[in-house]
């Protein structure tokens, strides 16, 4: 069972607060079905300018469809999408959005430099190719043919292609899937440089570590729905929460609350339930301070169940 848990934006299909055109991304009630399969089952999402947001979820959660709809490559069955207060197509035409999507082979028989210049020429306010190449870490590849690049190099070139229009919003759909650790690190270094200039980044991933290291906000998505949305620190705390249960006669809730890691205490007669962000420390302190505590159990908190179910084995 997945627990619906809202930490920030959204909730039951309604948006909290009023979103103006200053927001980089606004999705309202977006739905998409492919035949009998519901890929996106009503997503509401608002991303303010300057945020770095991870769309985190297992394979098949609807991340790619959501991203495709966001950049206007697929029309939603229902709902609205706006980027900087305009339709995605117009935002793309104005060069405000760059994206690295899945399944986008590079054009063969061209050099990286030629490709960057050709795409730059299509954009209304392109950046100098040399500048983009440096930002994406492809300066030494400009004369290389696109069919002679490693996976990591190809991905950095695709990143450069997304940057060449000088976008203020960057959308990345599982950009590091299939890359090794070094290629992954190089890729994210480029994204961090870009985000460091105060621009907006939304990326999808099924790696918790990537979301944790790069994003300042995480949106958890599962079965086409947003199931949690909040600052990365809050989501991380969800991941470590545990319940410690024990039987302890005459327990003093206030004293128990002072144990390390404990965030909340419930006492029902002799039954005690502690919520903890560090169950190991809580347990050691509990047994040392209260030798009479017995029938001790440590469980993942309900939210953690949901979280583990969401992020799957890949994340751990």
């Amino acid at each position: 069972m997945v627990v619906r848990h809202y930490l920030g934006y959204g909730g039951d299909g309604t948006l909290v607060g009023v979103s103006g055109s200053g927001d980089a991304v606004v999705l309202r009630g977006v739905r998409k079905r492919y035949g009998d399969v519901t890929a996106v089952a009503g997503v509401d999402l608002t991303i303010a300018a300057g945020e770095v947001v991870a769309l985190l979820g297992p394979n098949g959660a609807g991340k790619s469809t959501t991203v495709d709809i966001m950049v206007g490559l697929r029309a939603p069955d229902a709902g609205e999408v706006s980027l900087y207060g305009m339709a995605p197509r117009r935002a793309l035409d104005e060069g405000r959005v760059g994206a690295v999507l899945q399944a986008g082979a590079l054009l063969p028989n061209a050099t990286v430099g030629e490709l960057l210049r050709a795409i730059a020429a299509l954009q209304p306010h392109p950046l100098p190719v040399a500048e983009v190449a440096a930002a994406a870490g492809v300066s030494e590849l400009l004369r290389r043919r696109t069919d002679r690049l490693s996976g990591g190099q190809q991905q950095r070139v695709r990143f450069a292609l997304a940057l060449v229009g000088d976008p203020s919003l960057l959308v990345l759909d599982e950009p590091t899937a299939g890359l090794d650790v070094a290629a992954r690190r190089d890729f994210w270094a480029g994204v961090r440089r870009y985000a460091g200039q105060g621009r907006t980044v939304l990326f999808s991933t099924h790696y918790l570590e990537e979301a944790d290291e790069v994003a300042d906000r995480i949106v958890l998505i599962d079965r086409g729905r947003v199931v949690a949305d909040g600052p990365t620190t809050a989501i991380r705390a969800m991941g470590s929460a545990r319940q410690v249960r024990c039987t302890l006669p005459d327990a003093d809730p206030d004293a128990l609350r002072d144990l390390p890691g404990v965030s909340s205490v419930e006492v029902h007669g002799a039954a005690v339930v502690l919520r903890s962000n560090d169950s190991d420390a809580t347990l050691r302190a509990l047994l040392a301070a209260y030798p009479l505590a017995h029938d001790v159990e440590v469980n993942a908190a309900a939210l953690t169940d949901a979280f583990l179910e969401l992020t799957g084995a890949e994340a751990h």
Binding site: V71, L92, G95, L101, G104, Q123, L161
Partner: peptide
């Protein structure tokens, strides 16, 4: 092979 998807993101 998806090159046209990349082009679709340009004007």
């Amino acid at each position: 092979r998806g090159w046209t998807r990349t082009l679709a993101l340009t004007p």
